[in-house]
């Protein structure tokens, strides 16, 4: 676990021209970093009912088995989203500093099973892209069909944006979360600003 005193988001120097929330109304798209969010990766056999039951028992989370779909549960610290990454791989995302508790609960429940739990919170940051033109912006760098009919609320996907590997998650009709490796975060942020210029993209203060 990273010491909170020492940690620095990869985009902490990237949003000097921060707009106000009210500006979203005028802008076609808005960017906001959601730094330090919890990200825990789980590997295990989806065909093993005992594995699914152990995860549900320890966390209350029913793992999504449909490809590229998420399951969301509410916790006192906010929602925890579980993203399907593959037929034997999932990613839990949620408010900052929840990884240790989640890893401990899963580790305890999965002792002796063919499974792996890893805290990846420091490996990626999250960029939230919103606004009425956000799909036009993404279409410039992402080949995936992100229309609401094909990529509805609750859908997720691993893919490319402008050649950077990302995990996309549609959290609402007008927004997506983009989980990107910290070494690619600045590049992707600047690319989104450049691609969004014609839509009047604004940046908002980061908020976990």
């Amino acid at each position: 676990m990273v010491e909170t005193v020492l940690r620095q988001s990869p985009l902490s120097t990237c949003h000097p021209e921060v707009g106000a929330l009210a500006e979203i109304g005028e802008a076609g798209a808005a960017l906001r970093e959601r730094p330090y969010r919890t990200k825990v990766n789980l590997r295990g056999d989806a065909a093993d009912k005992a594995f699914l039951k152990a995860v549900a028992g320890a966390t209350g989370i029913e793992l999504p088995l449909e490809p590229n779909r998420t399951a969301v549960i509410e916790r006192q610290f906010g929602p925890v989203a579980t993203l399907w990454l593959g037929p034997n791989e999932w990613l839990f995302t949620g408010a900052p500093d929840q990884a240790a508790a989640l890893v401990e609960a899963l580790d305890g429940a999965l002792i002796g099973r063919h499974a792996a739990v890893n805290d990846l919170s420091g490996s990626r940051t999250t960029i939230e892209l919103s606004g009425p033109r956000h799909l036009d912006l993404l279409a410039k760098g992402c080949a995936l069909d992100l229309d609401l009919a094909a990529f509805p609320v609750g859908a997720c996907a691993q893919t490319h944006i402008a050649r950077a590997l990302v995990i996309l998650h549609r959290t609402a009709e007008d927004r997506v979360e983009i989980h990107v490796a910290r070494s690619f975060a600045e590049y992707l942020w600047l690319w989104l600003l450049d691609a969004g210029a014609e839509y009047g993209v604004v940046t908002l203060a980061g908020a976990p």
């Binding site: 490809p67 590229n68 593959g86 037929p87 080949a143 995936l144 893919t159």
Partner: peptide
């Protein structure tokens, strides 16, 4: 077979 149609660059 799991994710549906995707761009060749992903493969």
């Amino acid at each position: 077979p799991w994710c549906g149609p995707r761009d060749e660059q992903e493969f």
